[in-house]
C-alpha cells in the first residue's frame, strides 16, 4: 500500500460531484420545478374559463399581481399570520418546558416512554383529531353540559367556529413537531457545560439564560421552521373548526383556483404568499441573529468585569 496507489482511488471516489443527488434533481425538476414554473407562468395570464386550462396567455402582464395586492389579500394574510405567529409562540412556550423536562429532569427509563407518548398522537390522522376537537367544543356537547351543571360557566361553550378554536387545534396539531426538535437540541447539550456554569457560580436562571437557551437555539429554529411554514399554508384545520373566522390565505388560493376558476389570480396570490413567508423568515432570522449579537456583547461585558461573587 504505497502512497502512489491512493490518488486514482480517491479520484474515482470523488469523480461525479453530484451524481448521488442526481435522482433527486431529476425528480424535483420533473415534479416540482416544471409544474410550478407553469403555475408561475400562468400568473401573468388572464382567466379564460372556456379553455380546459382556464388561462389565456395572449397578453401577459402583471395585472394579477396588482389585483392580488388587494385588501382581501391583506386582510386574509394578516389573519393567517396572526394565527400562525401566535400558534408558533404558544407551541414554543408550551413545548419548551416539556422538552426541558424530558432532556434534563426525567429518569432514563421514563424518558423513552414519555417521548413515545409525545410522538404517538401524531400517528393518528391529524384530520380526525381536528374533527374530534368539535366534540368538546360543541355548545350542545357533553362537556358544555357538565360545565354548566357544575356552574363553571354561565352559558354553553361558544368556541366552535371561532378563531380561538382554530388556535387551539393548530397548537395541538403542531405541538409534537415543536417538542421533538427542542428535545433533541437540549439533549445534545453536554451536561458538563451546565455543570461548569454552576461551578463558576452562575445561578439556575443565569445558567438557563446564558448556557441552555442559546445552545437550544438551533432546536428552536428547527421547530419554528417545522411548525410556522406549514401553519401558514394550513387551511384545513381552520375550515374544520373556524367557520367564517377560519379564513386563511391557503383557503383564498384554493377558492381562486377551484371556486372562481381564476388560475392566474390564484397563482399570483400563491407567489406573493411564498414571498411573504420568506420575508417573515428573514425577519425572524434577523431578530435571532441580532439577539445573539446583543447577548454576546452583554456577555463580553460581564467577563471583562470579572467573575461575579
Amino acid at each position: 500500500m504505497t502512497a502512489s496507489v491512493v490518488p486514482p482511488k480517491r479520484g474515482r471516489l470523488r469523480a461525479p460531484k453530484f451524481l448521488l443527488a442526481g435522482p433527486s434533481i431529476i425528480w424535483y425538476v420533473l415534479f416540482f420545478v416544471a409544474p410550478i414554473a407553469f403555475i408561475v407562468y400562468y400568473s401573468f395570464g388572464t382567466k379564460d374559463s372556456s379553455k380546459l386550462v382556464p388561462v389565456d396567455m395572449s397578453s401577459p402582464g402583471f395585472h394579477n399581481y396588482s389585483e392580488a395586492f388587494s385588501s382581501t389579500f391583506f386582510t386574509t394574510f394578516k389573519a393567517t399570520l396572526r394565527v400562525a405567529v401566535t400558534a408558533t409562540l404558544l407551541t414554543v412556550v408550551i413545548g419548551f418546558p416539556v422538552a426541558y423536562f424530558l432532556a434534563f429532569k426525567v429518569q432514563e427509563r421514563w424518558r423513552a416512554i414519555l417521548l413515545a407518548l409525545v410522538i404517538v398522537p401524531s400517528f393518528t390522522s391529524f384530520l380526525i383529531r381536528t374533527v374530534a376537537w368539535r366534540i368538546p367544543l360543541a355548545p350542545n356537547g357533553t362537556l358544555s353540559k357538565w360545565l354548566q351543571d357544575w356552574g363553571v360557566i354561565g352559558g354553553p361553550i361558544s368556541l366552535l367556529e371561532t378563531r380561538t378554536a382554530v388556535q387551539i387545534a393548530i397548537v395541538y396539531n403542531y405541538l409534537g413537531f415543536m417538542i421533538l426538535p427542542l428535545y433533541v437540541a437540549l439533549d445534545r447539550i453536554e451536561p458538563v457545560l451546565r455543570e461548569a456554569s454552576k461551578d463558576l457560580g452562575a445561578g439556575r436562571v443565569s445558567t438557563f439564560m446564558r448556557v441552555t437557551l442559546p445552545l437550544a437555539g438551533p432546536g428552536i429554529a428547527a421547530g419554528v421552521l417545522l411548525t410556522f411554514i406549514p401553519m401558514c399554508g394550513d387551511y384545513v384545520t381552520a375550515t374544520v373548526l373556524g367557520g367564517a373566522k377560519g379564513n386563511m390565505i391557503g383557503a383564498l388560493i384554493d377558492s381562486e383556483f377551484k371556486g372562481a376558476q381564476n388560475w392566474p389570480l390564484g397563482s399570483a396570490i400563491a407567489v406573493l404568499m411564498i414571498l411573504a413567508v420568506l420575508v417573515m423568515l428573514a425577519i425572524g432570522a434577523i431578530v435571532v441573529v441580532g439577539g445573539q449579537w446583543l447577548l454576546r456583547r452583554m456577555r463580553r461585558v460581564d467577563l471583562s468585569d470579572g467573575a461575579p461573587a
Binding site: I36, I39, I229, G250, I253, F257, S267, A270, M273, I274
Partner: peptide
C-alpha cells in the same frame, strides 16, 4: 415553503 395548494394544482 411552497403552499401545498399550489403544488397540488400544479
Amino acid at each position: 415553503v411552497t403552499p401545498e395548494i399550489m403544488d397540488a394544482i400544479a
